[in-house]
Amino acid sequence: MSGDAGTVILDVDRLEKHYGGVHAVDGVSFTVERGSITGLIGPNGAGKSTALAVIGGYVSPTAGRIHFDGADITGYPMHARARVGLVRTFQMARVFGNLTTIENLLVAVPRQRGESAAGILAGKWFWRGEERQLVERARALLDTFGMSTKADDPARTLSGGQKRAVEIMRALMMKPKLLLLDEPMAGLSPSLSRQLEDMLIRLAGDGLSLLLVEHELDTVDRLCGKVVVMAQGRVLSEGRMAELRLSREVQDAYVIG
């Protein structure tokens, strides 16, 4: 295993994903440092979203290994990855439509006492204390995101931007170590996406690691320390955005597609 478990949180090693004859991801390797924001960019069809789906556990890889926080998680199903702190959001924000906004946050916490066999058998007194703490954490998050007034509304009634916010709050309720974001700014108004950018920078400052797929290169420029460029299922180049913009190879990939 390459990389040092101390500074590297995610180590993707020669990852491949084939669909029939199509090599959507074709031997991709890169690392994500602890507390950093890493960008994954590339033209349409480069395999970024597939790579993210494989890392998140939604799709199983054809070959390659994924190490997270010092452990090999290649065989972990999605929910097990979430439980060790590798949490993903979706390109199209997915909320639990019939639950209220605050319930969407509460439900996300893994291994709640009230979900366990003991909690079901013993009843409310067993989980009431933990539940109270979760409600407080959820309310605090809703305040931070300015959504307290929506707490008891069904999530299906929220706007697109609000749903995106719910998804990110839901991820934060899980106290993740690494957050995978698939085009988090897509569909947000410019002012909202600036707010989200500030939020992500603050989270990274607090020690959270982020890996994001993003189309908008200016956003990537502002957020990401390291950027991995993919084209046709492979890693083309990696480095800082400012350097990459000058690279002939990267420019060609974007022009040719």
Binding site: A82, F96, P110, R111, Q112, I120
Partner: peptide, 26 residues
């Protein structure tokens, strides 16, 4: 015991979107 409280909430989340539920560690 199954339809109320945290477990009832978790089951309903699974009903509404099972992919998002597994992404939330369920």
């Amino acid at each position: 015991r199954f339809t109320t409280g945290p477990i009832g909430r978790t089951l309903r989340a699974m009903r509404d979107d099972d992919t998002a539920a597994s992404a939330a560690g369920k």
